[in-house]
Design a protein around this nucleic acid. Structure first.
Length: 475
RNA sequence: GGCCCUAUCGUCUAGCCUGGCCCAGGACGCAAGGUUCUCAACCUUGAAACAUGGGUUCAAAUCCCAUUGGGGUCACCA
């Protein structure tokens, strides 16, 4: 039964590019909202003025759009909501639930170090806590803290992990804001989630330890508690939180490398979630139908590039040739792109040949240069298994040359060529004939089949390249 | 270090709630073979895991306890 009041959000902070983990959180939040006919919104958490940058916000938005994880109109930016935070902050101070703390950062750091040394929980119960404005900032240091008087255990029910319990003493008087108009994370989140009527907070496991603080603030402000679902983390090879130093962690890195959005979507969905059966390749419709928190994994998942690569190949294979060609066009050097944009059929034929041989589109350009210019290669490449006699190669090439010359240019097709040449190749040894033919056309050890290449190149070009090869040997 | 989360093949995981069908299934990767002028694709086969120790039970990957390992977090970052 769909819950009509469901509202979820993705709340990235624009201090870096769209992280894979953020994308997956967005994906699950989006699915959950869709499943329940609810809403999914975007909130940019840019309260850290020092580190937030517009280019990161742009990247995050582009990444989400690329994956077609769309939010419902509402987009918020915390930096534009300072009046709201100020209002709630005033209320907290007035009610005696918050206070100004005048300790310097150095003092606080020292205190923490002392506590850690004594094997205790590092926390700050402040001496200014009983008079909200005693420590008020005039010019020196100071921030607004939560006056944590909680005695009872703080409990919440996580949709993925069940009940989680914290004892409040370990929290201390935690920070709320640097100043009236400079809210800090835990406080801003609580206010926004309430104001935006978020029903389900879906986020990474690294936020579990923030949850009790947020609950305390919610209670002090008289807010109703949302539901929580803490997703397992995405890990690197060393099983630590995946971070920038681990290489490509931004969704747009994968976009730029020419991965397909469907593949990335499918892959990150499967990183921590699994359907009832063994199906691993699935559409967003399938996921929409099948997703549930009950099947979300509790333990972290290592990001496995090899599997993504495999998955991208699967999607690449199933892509219609026209679609693939259009998409792939973006990954060509300018000069070739112009040629292909004018000659779509030519380009599609090329893509058809390489589509199943590449992992991602960025590999394409390096493999198809011989369609745009004559190949440059050492004559040794023409030898099959590196020990074929050059005289034999010349003999075979000339034979093929003559066969091809007799064929009408218009019916210079894969099939016709094959029919014409195969009897000869069977007789002389397939490798002995086909290898030199293929390498003469493309100048590469590895490539699609000779007839496939020849058909795309066309009769005139094929004859020219065969003659070149013969000359190369004879000189 | 305190607190919290977590634990099945190298990796992603099914199975665990509701013990027996599991000497543990699938996928990626790996290895071997087949197909093949090369590469890719495809087909067949194989190696590969219930963290450890105690219980409970006729029976435990599944339930209970302890231990160990891994991770997260403890900011005037989010």
């Amino acid at each position: 039964m769909p819950n009509k009041t469901v509202k979820t959000r993705i709340a990235p902070s624009p201090t870096g590019f769209l992280h894979i983990g953020t994308a997956r959180t967005a994906l699950f939040s989006w699915i959950f909202a869709r499943q329940n006919k609810g809403k999914f919104i975007l909130r940019v958490e840019d309260t850290d003025l020092e580190r937030s940058e517009p280019r990161f916000e742009k990247d995050i938005i582009e990444g989400l759009k690329w994956l077609e994880i769309g939010w419902d109109g509402e987009t918020y930016r915390q930096s534009e909501r300072l009046d709201i935070y100020e209002k709630y902050l005033a209320r907290l101070l007035k009610d005696g639930n918050a206070f100004w703390c005048r300790h310097s950062e150095e003092e606080l750091a020292e205190e923490r170090a002392r506590q850690m040394k004594k094997n205790g929980a590092p926390r700050h119960f402040c001496e200014f806590r009983d008079d909200p404005f005693q420590g008020r900032k005039k010019s020196g240091p100071g921030i607004i803290r939560f006056k944590n008087n909680a005695k009872e255990d703080i409990k919440f029910n996580d949709l993925i992990r069940g009940e989680i319990v914290f004892s409040p003493e370990t929290l201390g008087d935690f920070s709320l804001a640097k100043d009236w108009r400079a809210p800090l994370y835990n406080f801003a989140v609580v206010v926004d989630d309430f104001e935006m009527k978020i029903s389900h907070i879906i986020r990474g496991e690294d936020h579990i330890s923030n949850t009790p603080k947020q609950i305390l603030i919610q209670k002090a402000l008289g807010f109703s508690l949302p539901q929580y679902a803490h997703l397992p983390l995405i890990l690197n090879k060393n099983r630590a939180k995946l971070s920038k130093r681990d290489g490509a962690v931004s969704i747009n890195d994968y976009r730029k490398e020419g991965y397909l959005p469907q593949a990335v979507f499918n892959f990150i969905a499967l990183l921590g979630w699994h359907p009832k059966d063994d199906q691993e390749i699935f559409s967003r419709e399938y996921l929409l139908k099948e997703f549930s928190f009950g099947r979300v994994q509790k333990g972290g998942a290592v990001f496995n590039l090899e599997k993504l690569n495999w998955m991208n190949k699967v999607y690449l294979k199933s892509l219609k040739i026209g679609t693939a060609a259009d998409y792939a066009l973006n990954f060509l050097p300018e000069e070739w792109r112009k040629i292909c944009a004018k000659n779509k059929k030519f380009w599609q034929n090329i893509v058809k040949l390489e589509k199943e041989r590449i992992v991602k589109f960025s590999e394409l350009a390096g493999k198809i240069d011989y369609f745009f210019k004559e190949p440059v290669y050492p004559k040794e490449i023409l030898c099959w298994k590196e020990k074929q006699d050059y005289q034999d190669i010349v003999r075979h090439l000339i034979y093929i040359l003559k066969l091809f010359e007799k064929m009408p240019a218009l019916s210079f097709s894969e099939n016709k060529m094959e029919k014409a040449i195969m009897p000869y190749a069977e007789k002389e040894g397939k490798g002995d004939v086909l290898w030199p033919l293929r390498t003469a056309l493309c100048g590469k050890k590895y490539s699609p089949g000779p007839f496939e290449i020849a058909a795309v190149l066309g009769k005139k070009e094929v004859l020219k390249r065969l003659k070149n090869a013969v000359e190369k040997i004879q000189n």
